[in-house]
Design a protein around this nucleic acid. Structure first.
Lengths: 149, 149
DNA sequence: TCCAACTTTAGATTTAGTCTAAATAGTGTG
DNA sequence: CACACTATTTAGACTAAATCTAAAGTTGGA
């Protein structure tokens, strides 16, 4: 319990992210409930104990936490937004800064290890996305950015 | 040109998806423009040449195309919707049927090949998601589903 | 203590995506 | 070819998710 508390505090310090009660609550909830929650679920849950917590703050907190690497956004379900009609196999690269998506040439995966990790589940498709800074942005020609949520 | 046309027709036949002018236009546009477009961009573009094309139809068409494997949804930018506060490394499994997200134990990737594919880009993080049918759904205990876009 | 920067808040606003009911198009059968 | 049946499209209303805004509240450092 207080173990977790210490761990979280340490995490905030380590990343240099200012710790506010709201951010702490959001992170703590996410750590406690290991499900992959939506912003709305987090809002509802945290709001139940901490009455006046604004929806916008949940989004702010999540942004900040993702930014500093303590939380990872996962694209599930209908959260697609972009489409790709390629019939050839390839992977993707997404730029943290400008959000652009680029195709990468295909490389094979360790299917043995993958099968093991998948357990009994039947796998239809594997999706690999690398995140980082694209070459345009690296060269400082940053156009603009829309931060990821 | 007409080469592409034949290829697309072939693709429709192969997947058994009924070919309609709207679906054809959407797929053709996606093939021609290799960018990873949003539904809105596709709507705007296709609508420019094919005047009366409804927004809903673009979504319908995309659904159908994704369903039959001709188009792949890519989660970019703000399209996250779910969050995950884990400090331990892991991969994800998303069920096509019920949309649930499960954690998979970590397995290493072929970093050599990956580096090569990444070219000069600096990679901060790698994200791996397997798609398929989860064990609950496989057992027929399907609760319900929200189809992926 | 005071200031400046940062954060939170409530609620309005924007945007993406879905839904609906009616019209249209396509398919197979006799 | 006519028929009935099913699938698809349409416009626009609707819903839900996320962002924005301006004002109020916190915080840490000089």
């Amino acid at each position: 319990m207080s173990d977790v508390k210490a761990q979280l505090q340490e995490a905030f310090e380590r990343t240099g992210l200012r710790q506010t009660p709201q951010r702490y609550d959001v992170l703590a909830w996410l750590v406690r409930h290991r499900k992959h929650a939506t912003a709305e679920e987090i809002f509802d849950a945290v709001n139940r104990t901490n009455q006046r917590l604004s929806r916008a703050t949940v989004y702010n907190a999540l942004h900040a936490l993702v930014e500093s690497g303590l939380v990872r956004p996962v694209a599930g379900e209908g959260a697609a937004a972009r489409f790709d009609a390629t019939l050839d196999r390839h992977h993707h690269f997404i730029c943290d800064r400008c959000g652009s998506i680029e195709d990468l040439t295909w490389f094979d995966l360790p299917s043995k290890a993958m099968q093991a990790a998948a357990g009994g589940r039947s796998v239809r498709q594997v999706e690999i996305t690398l995140h980082g800074i694209c070459q345009r942005c690296a060269r400082g020609k940053t156009k603009q950015a829309t931060a990821s949520v």
